[in-house]
Design a protein around this nucleic acid. Structure first.
Lengths: 231, 231
DNA sequence: CTTGACAGCTTACACTGTAAGGTTCATTTT
DNA sequence: AAAATGAACCTTACAGTGTAAGCTGTCAAG
């Protein structure tokens, strides 16, 4: 009757939304590789296995995180000029992917196949189709633009701004003496300045796509597709 | 006494070269995340800890693998036209990185800082500098080209050709009905056909770089740099 | 012979994801 | 009110990870 100290545990405290919020936090704090179900549980004030009631596995949780990010992606409407739409679409993807920087590398290598992700992919590919390139060229331009986009996201979130991965380090004097071009280029890549580089390449790709679109592809596109059957 | 001239090594059967060869094999067989020191040891017929006599940590071993790959990269000589040199340089990087596909994703996110890697990077940046863009534009073009390159390598070695990452799957009927653009684009991306897409984007970038190089950048480069100061 | 360095092995520890099964409690049914 | 149900959460356990610490066997030099 005196009912020993009963730890009041609200039974339905845990929810998918709470778990996902906490997961993003833990990932940012501990890094993607430092993340674990036990650390997530600690952040939530529960046991690791409790999370498995809401997600059958860690992979399912990660997938939910990706879905969430992609749901936040806004596809530009068709009231805008074509170039603008493609530009905004790519910048939007970059924006949502870099919102949780530590998680971004996961998105980059993730092969999306869930309905929410496929819906966004479908819209983005539709953007390229709207350029009137025909099916094959639309597909390849989408993919090529995606290459650039993924590389850019990766550099911004996991690139040299995070310091070297290498275990062996080279002194500043050696760098200046032996690798002057690396040092010279490095001056333009501090923790800031990603936008400038990214936009440069983005506009280059948009320029070329518009050129192809305007039919002025006698040399350009031909060179690209002529060269494409090396195996 | 005369035996002091040359030292017959023949000490142990393990060597860095053997370990690295075996590491590449195990990584290809088990996948990057399936690789472990114990599996590597099993492949070598020794115990896991024996490897630590040759590499102080797994990170050191990985670094040695990257160094090896980069040492195999051939920088095109300056006897060739500029565009050709840049093209070959990028294709060479792609070639060596995709030689061990399962290891490629590691290279892509690896921040190289060892002397062998820096030497190659220095040469590649030098290729861009040789374009006469000036220091800043050289650096940014190198980086932008690198974005595209990394994204392409990632797609080829860890992309959709490997099947979906997602745990939830969507049936073919649903795909055709709800995501027609995805299905349409997917037709051009089987396990083969990477070259064609990659070369298309590569030539686009080369076109633009030559255009900038030829001074015809009134709209192009200006648009890119004007837009680059959002923060 | 001894000595000492080298190369590889054994053990142990703190971590990981998660399978299997136990416990508690809100809700519904009787 | 009492009993049953099932969702939500916890405990334990296992096979795997990287690697620190220390041990063993081999071999060349003194």
């Amino acid at each position: 009757m005196d009912s020993s100290i009963k730890k009041k545990r609200a039974r339905g405290r845990l929810s998918r939304e709470m778990i996902e919020d906490a997961a993003f936090e833990v990932i940012e704090r501990e890094g993607l590789s430092g993340f674990s179900m036990r650390k997530l549980a600690a952040a939530l004030g529960c046991e690791a296995m409790s999370i498995y009631h809401h997600y059958p596995s860690q992979a399912h949780l990660y997938e939910a995180l990706v879905d969430r990010q992609m749901n936040a992606l806004v596809i530009p409407g068709d009231g805008l000029p074509w170039r603008e739409r493609v530009r905004i679409g790519m910048q939007e993807f970059r924006r949502v992917a870099t919102e949780h920087p530590a998680f971004a590398p996961f998105i980059v290598v993730y092969r999306m196949n869930s309905p929410p992700c496929l819906a966004k992919l479908n819209s983005i590919i539709g953007l390229f189709e709207a350029g009137g390139f025909g099916p094959e060229l639309s597909a390849r331009l989408f993919r090529a633009a995606g290459y650039y986009l993924m590389g850019g996201i990766l550099d911004e979130t996991a690139g040299y701004a995070k310091g070297p991965s290498a275990v062996t380090t080279v002194s500043s004097e050696e760098m200046a003496r032996d690798f002057p071009s690396v040092v010279a280029a490095g001056a333009y890549f501090g923790t800031t300045g990603f936008d400038k580089t990214f936009d440069l390449g983005l506009e280059m790709l948009l320029d070329e796509m518009e050129r192809i679109r305007d039919g002025a592809r006698a040399a350009t596109a031909k060179a690209g597709s002529d060269r494409g059957h090396s195996n």
